[in-house]
Nucleic acid binder design. Structure first.
Lengths: 106, 106
DNA sequence: TTGACATGCAAGTAAATGCTTGCCTATTAT
DNA sequence: ATAATAGGCAAGCATTTACTTGCATGTCAA
């Protein structure tokens, strides 16, 4: 049905879910967290009761979108936020026409 | 299940759909378009074949998110883009900790 | 090696989402 | 008044999405 390609599709889809935005909030505050750490902090600090697998799936989506980077170390996997995919969002819809006509009427 | 409130939820949901992002692209290029004009341009310029109602529903979602503003004039309703709800997106996840530790390893 | 811990894989389910179809209202032109 | 135009409302359907449950893999300590 869609005959075009949108490079930012994964990023927008990843940001669409409130739990994933919460995860990004957590990582923005402290990077290098494991899956269990993230689960714990979401539960205790945000009263969010989700299974480990649910969080794991969210992290996978965030990682595919490039918003989360991971580093493996033994049996641990550390997650960190990467905000670079967010940068093109703003510039995409910044006015290409004159600023003068920004107001809707007149 | 979600015990918190996210003020930007509507904006992110609105941006999650590729057709709605295309509509914003169109309005960023030319404001003050009617529903029929938007339908026409999506069809001719983007090979997107959706019904008028589908586009109308997308515009409603965009308007509720504050990303589109409308002005009624007789039987016409003109749509324009409003990028102000996008601004908090960037600042939300900008590092609150030191910039030094942005790299994942070391 | 055995058990505990951290994570991964996959099928199933309930709810949300995008889209269509059909009908209705309001404004303008003839 | 009548018809055409621009838009609105709402039910129905198919796909997607988030989440759970159950089991499997890999790493580390005793």
């Amino acid at each position: 049905m869609l005959a075009y390609y949108d490079a930012m599709a994964d990023v927008f889809k990843a940001l669409a879910d409130p739990t994933r935005r919460l995860i990004l909030d957590e990582l923005a505050e402290r990077n290098e967290q494991t899956l269990f750490e993230i689960c714990g902090r979401l539960t205790t600090r945000h009263s969010l009761s989700l299974t480990r697998q649910a969080i794991s799936q969210h992290l996978e989506i965030l990682e595919e979108a490039g918003l989360v980077r991971t580093r493996r170390e033994g049996r641990y996997k550390f997650h960190s936020i990467d905000t670079t995919p967010l940068e093109p969002i703003m510039s995409r819809w910044l006015r290409r026409t004159t600023t003068k006509e920004k107001g809707v009427s007149e």
